[in-house]
Design a protein around this nucleic acid. Structure first.
Lengths: 177, 177
DNA sequence: GTCTATACAGGGATAGAC
DNA sequence: GTCTATCCCTGTATAGAC
């Protein structure tokens, strides 16, 4: 699974052939099929594990914070740090979600992560800290900017701590009353 | 090119084979190669034309506005309307950009569109209407939310006029002083 | 410009020995 | 669990007639 993730991140799905995966881990091609029924199943399993890992990390971090703004910030940083430490996993996830596989695997963990932000927004709207309006729109000002910056990170653009904090603040400005 | 775009949008690159493209337009497979040297060239040509069309439309609309905020709004609406009227083209563009093709075709028109928003931000920062800070970060609060909403539109989520205006306002809140 | 026929390569998957 | 060998299919691209 690791080899598959790395290959997809490096050169796309078309490069992640069974031959390439097997070669990278020094295993025979046929042996792959003792562990996975098909290549598709391997990719889907890798995607599921990736999302589950991120979800675990993010929920653990946001639970420690009390204020709405701090929860949102912790969530942003949790995702940022998780993916920044494994950019190949990030790129794999992006490509997977944009591929035809996405229709096969909606992603329960993905839904769980979305639900987590949804909750922050609803709490903030209830307490009067976050502007009223469709939460779906507000979420579009959280994950998409975050992933856009991660994408640039994976292509060599470096962000210093100030820039990350600036981004988090922009996100909060978009949300706040 | 139209058939290729539609097929990629419907079922991903793996489904957009030369056989499928030829069948959809009622043409023999071999005939495709009288118009394009290779399948890759076909995809890249389609992507270039797509971006060029969007650029033309967007620059035409934003030129009519005077204030910074109105220019930003016109740009958002220009892209929104262009892609909302051709969701297949939008999805194709997303998938193309996330695929291995993206390394072959950086996209001059894409750069031009980015430069256009960059200009709006710089003008706004100079006039004191837009907060100081890295323009790259601010751009992450423009296109990514916009495309995230378009992506949902392409999967059946409908947005009414108020929600679109709400999104534009959120983007402006993220930018403004 | 378009078609038919075909060459060629590569990828997914299986069988069976060790 | 792993390897080797192999089958089969599909996808890209070309040749050549009309």
């Amino acid at each position: 699974m690791r080899a598959a993730v790395d290959l997809v991140a490096e050169a796309g799905f078309s490069a992640a052939t069974t031959a390439a995966i097997a070669e990278r881990i020094g295993m025979a091609e046929g042996t792959l099929y003792r562990h996975f029924k098909s290549k598709d199943e391997l990719f889907i399993a890798a995607y599921r594990q990736l999302k589950a890992d991120v979800f675990e990390r993010v929920t653990a971090e946001t639970g420690l914070e009390s204020s709405i703004q701090a929860r949102a910030r912790a969530m942003w940083l949790g995702m940022w740090q998780t993916y920044a430490n494994d950019l190949a996993a990030f790129t794999f996830g992006q490509r997977f979600a944009e591929s035809a596989y996405s229709s096969l695997e909606g992603g329960t963990a993905h839904e769980a992560i979305m639900g987590h932000v949804h909750k922050i927004i609803q709490d903030g709207q209830a307490s009067g800290e976050i502007r009223a309006g469709d939460p779906t729109v507000l979420i579009a000002f959280f994950f998409p900017p975050l992933t856009a910056m991660l994408k640039q990170l994976s292509t060599g653009r470096n962000w210093d701590q100030d820039e990350v904090e600036f981004a988090i603040d922009c996100a909060w400005q978009a949300w706040r009353i």
